[in-house]
Design a protein around this nucleic acid. Structure first.
Lengths: 216, 216
DNA sequence: CTCTCATTGTGGACAATTGCACAATAAGGG
DNA sequence: CCCTTATTGTGCAATTGTCCACAATGAGAG
């Protein structure tokens, strides 16, 4: 049976490969930069040259979601950027919490680059009595014990983990329990989370080790 | 002509896919953690379950480099970790410089996790007169103008960029000119570097945007 | 010494991804 | 209005990556 009923069709969105999704934010960032340079239109070729990606791949990726360009002319930058924001759901602002108020957590809390990319830091949490209550920039560091209630009350879906490796899994479990569905972890350890929760890892040592292979 | 002469063969190392290289540091990190837990042996299955990677893939990846396991038993963790360190060339210590002494650069300079993973922070540089000469932890922030001479004198091949997006390309050019061959960039911008220089990018907004697609 | 169990390394099937190449077509110049 | 140029969107072929399934085999029990 290789047919679908009309009822099925209504909810049948084409399954987009994750590797394609992963490139869209990179396209969006480049488009935002072009806009900042005062540019109005671009082409898959120009974008590809900037990003080191083939023009064909960019066109193919975009074609998964619709037709955004004009033959002979290329893409209107602002329009394409808006379309990508919509696809990625960053045409609205996502509230994000940070767990861990060490150097990394505080650097993240102070980073001004989130707002223009669709994110707002809603709070920074730690479980050390020394740090709780401390003022840092515009934030007062809150007790991790209060995280669940706050995240649930506010419907927060995203978090960043900036605690030591030894505490990261425990924090991840807490976040999942609090209803968080997407985690960006700076802890150098693999997190196990239930299906439906997404994790991205940032570990500078991993990134460095990925390059040493190619050095002499 | 689909043949190779004997002369070619001598230097013909099998070309390993970069995607495989990218997984090796993840395997290594998990093995180091198992060692810290006091474990002696593991299997492709156990490792795969921890990492969310199929056992077959782990075996196939490792088989690109040799035979490291024992049938019926699995892998000796310490031995495999050492083999991976050798493959990735992190069985020695790489000197790394940081450019940019803002929050991110200083957090990186203070991060204690590099040494056990094969890296040593050699110095932190900035071009702001306000910051140059300032003491930060064990480091005195140095003038970026002195970077090239130092990197060349010491044969330093790796760098991390932690400057604003607007300055990143300029810094990358300087690093390339100074002989740096691998760059880990925290600047939210695409860097263009000549062939032979490798770049890895870390941009939290990109990682977050990669996940919002899947949220509602 | 033989049997059983666990687990590796790998050939080859299958799946996913990339890239080529071209018809379609928009825009501008004359 | 016609010609030229630029550039898209896409069918299809080529390439790359993943995974199944199994022979080989090491270790331990009896």
């Amino acid at each position: 049976m290789l047919q679908f009923s009309a009822g099925d069709m209504i909810t049948m969105a084409k399954q987009i490969p994750d590797i394609v999704i992963g490139r869209l934010p990179v396209y969006l960032r480049a488009l935002q930069q072009m806009l900042a340079e005062g540019r109005q239109v671009t082409s898959s070729q120009e974008l590809g040259e900037r990003l080191g990606i083939s023009a064909a791949q960019i066109r193919k990726d975009l074609s998964q979601f619709g037709e955004f360009g004009k033959q002979g002319t290329g893409y209107n930058i602002e329009y394409l950027a808006n379309q990508l924001r919509e696809i990625l759901k960053v045409n609205k602002t996502w509230e994000v919490v940070i767990v861990g108020a060490g150097d990394i957590g505080r650097a993240l809390a102070g980073y001004s680059g989130f707002s223009e990319r669709g994110f707002n830091i809603r709070g920074i949490f730690d479980n050390s009595p020394k740090r709780i209550g401390e003022q840092h920039g515009e934030f007062v560091i809150k007790d991790t014990a209060t995280l669940k209630a706050e995240a649930q009350a506010e419907g927060i879906k995203m978090a960043m983990i900036a605690v030591p490796a030894s505490a990261a899994q425990e924090v991840a479990d807490l976040l999942v329990d609090a209803g968080i569905r997407a985690i960006l972890s700076y802890a150098p350890v693999n997190l196990n989370v239930p299906a439906g929760v997404r994790v991205q890892n940032i570990d500078p040592s991993i990134h460095l080790q990925r390059m040493t292979y190619y050095l002499d």
